[in-house]
């Protein structure tokens, strides 16, 4: 016989259906004479079948939003990495020079924009833990965050711009507790409203715009509260919602 002897590799190839017809017949003839090996191969085939029946349903599931997002917006990950790196750098910088910087009166808006943009970058991609308290408990959300910030807060409605309130969360900022409210539209785009108490009770400021890492932020100080509305969009795209928030929150 010219055929090489049956090897271990042949047995795997038989299991996985990778043999040519001729070799397959030879292996099967050999197996008929080796029932213990035939039983082993039967186990191997059952194992392949078990893997399929266990895990094939995963391939039938709807693709999670965050994975569709990963394909759609490749730059987000870079912006996230930048934001996270920035937090680390900012902490070091803060340890070294923060005290003086923090006291500089012109620096508050910079801090505000920075904090708001980081909070937006960190929390807005979250699918399952985007908010701590959902919009279904809006009264509780307002009462809780008002208590923590020591000020009566109001949550603006952005429905007319297509954004629904998702809920909010408590954050810690340089000056103490801050609040973040999150909104989402049908396309899955998110806006966040960041609110913190202005510790120095500075005069009200105008309505201004800043951009960092693709995150646009409109910010202002009004009645001792600092506000920032952030979104991963251009100034022009963000302006209508921001103007509306500003009007709704005006004392």
């Amino acid at each position: 016989m010219a055929s090489p002897p049956i090897s271990e590799d042949d047995l795997h190839a038989w299991t996985d259906g990778r043999l040519e017809a001729e070799r397959r017949a030879e292996v099967e003839a050999w197996l008929a004479a080796h029932p213990d090996k035939a039983q082993t191969l039967n186990h191997w085939r059952e194992l392949n079948a078990a893997l399929h029946s266990a895990y094939d349903p995963v391939a039938e599931e709807a693709i999670p939003a965050r994975l569709r997002e990963a394909v759609r917006r490749p730059r987000r990950s870079l912006a996230m990495a930048a934001a996270v790196g920035w937090i680390a750098f900012g902490s070091l910088l803060g340890i070294a020079t923060g005290y003086q910087l923090g006291r500089h009166p012109d620096d508050a808006p910079t801090q505000l924009v920075r904090n708001a943009a980081i909070a937006h970058a960190v929390f807005s991609p979250e699918q399952r833990h985007a908010v701590e308290v959902g919009a279904d408990q809006e009264q509780h959300l307002v009462a809780w965050l008002s208590k923590r910030l020591g000020r009566t807060l109001h949550i603006p409605a952005l429905d007319r711009h297509g954004y629904q309130l998702m809920g909010g969360r408590l954050l810690s900022a340089d000056a103490g507790p801050s609040a973040q409210f999150m909104y989402e539209n049908d396309a899955g785009e998110r806006l966040t409203l960041y609110v913190s108490v202005d510790p120095d009770r500075r005069d009200d400021t105008a309505f201004r715009f800043a951009e960092h890492d693709d995150i646009g932020t409109f910010y202002w100080i009004d009645g001792g509260l600092a506000y920032a509305l952030s979104g991963r969009m251009s100034r022009q795209a963000l302006l209508p919602a921001a103007t509306d928030v500003y009007r709704q929150l005006l004392r």
Partner: peptide, 26 residues
């Protein structure tokens, strides 16, 4: 997008955990 379902299936079996699997796919 068309490749995501098989990637998720493989990752799920590889990591043994749905969240870790999707982290790996992402």
């Amino acid at each position: 997008l068309a490749e995501i379902p098989p990637l998720r299936r493989y990752a799920r079996a590889l990591t043994g955990d749905p969240n870790r699997a999707d982290d790996l796919v992402q």
